[in-house]
Amino acid sequence: EGYSPTLKWQQQQVADFSAVRQSLSKHRNYWQSQNLDSNVIMPQSEDEEGWKKFCLGERVYSGIDEQSDNENLGINYIKVGFPPLLSIVSRMSQATVTTVLEYLISWFGEKKFTPELGRWLYALLACLEKPLLPEAHSLIRQLARRCSEVRVLEENKNEELISALNLIICLVSRYFDQRDLADEP
C-alpha cells in the first residue's frame, strides 16, 4: 500500500525508456568508436567477479561501508565502480549484455540493492535487444520477481529504493511484455 506506482507513471517510464533505447541504437556506432580512458579495462565476458567489481566497485563488492576517502578527493572508479557510460555499454555484445545481467541479478539475489546496481541494471535493460532470447526472458522475469520480494520487505519507506524497484518491475513487465508481473493500479 502506497508503494505501487500509478498507471500514468508507468506509462511515462516506458515512453522515456523507449526514447533512450532509440537514441542508444542510433548512436551506438559513434560511441563504439570513441576511445575509452586508459583506466577503463573491461573484463572478459566469463570473468564474473571482474564484472561485479567493474560495475559495483570494490567497496560494494567487498561489503565495506566506507563513505569518504580523505586522501583522494577525485573519484576512484576502481573503488566506486565504473558507471554505465555509452562509450562502455556500446562496446558490449548482446551475449555480454546478457551474461553481465545474469551476474548482477545473481548478486542482487543475495545482496542489498544499491544505486550503482540500479544504474547498471537499467543500462543493460536498455541494451537488451527485442525479441528477447529465451535466457534473457527468464533472467529479466527473475529480476522483476526479486525486486517485488525486496519491495515487500522494505519497511522504512525508502523512497529512492522503492522508486528504483518500481522502475525495474515496470520496464520488465510493460516494456518487455511480461504483463503478468505488472503492478496493476
Binding site: 500500500e1 502506497g2 508503494y3 506506482p5 507513471w9 511515462q12 517510464q13 522515456d16 525508456f17 526514447a19 533512450v20 537514441s23 542508444l24 542510433k26 548512436h27 559513434y30 560511441w31 570513441q34 558507471p83 554505465p84 557510460l85 555509452l86 562509450s87 555499454v89 540500479g118 544504474r119 537499467y122 543500462a123 536498455a126 519507506k157 523512497e159 529512492e160 522503492i162 522508486s163 528504483a164 518500481n166 522502475l167
Partner: peptide, 27 residues
C-alpha cells in the same frame, strides 16, 4: 534538438535512470 544534444552525452543512461527514480513519490 534535445534528443540530438543528449546523443553526445556519454552519461545519458545514468541521467535517464536518475531522472526516472527521482520522479516517483510514495503515497
Amino acid at each position: 534538438q534535445n534528443e540530438d544534444s543528449d546523443a553526445w552525452d556519454d552519461s545519458v543512461l545514468i541521467k535517464a535512470y536518475d531522472k526516472a527514480v527521482a520522479s516517483f513519490k510514495t503515497a
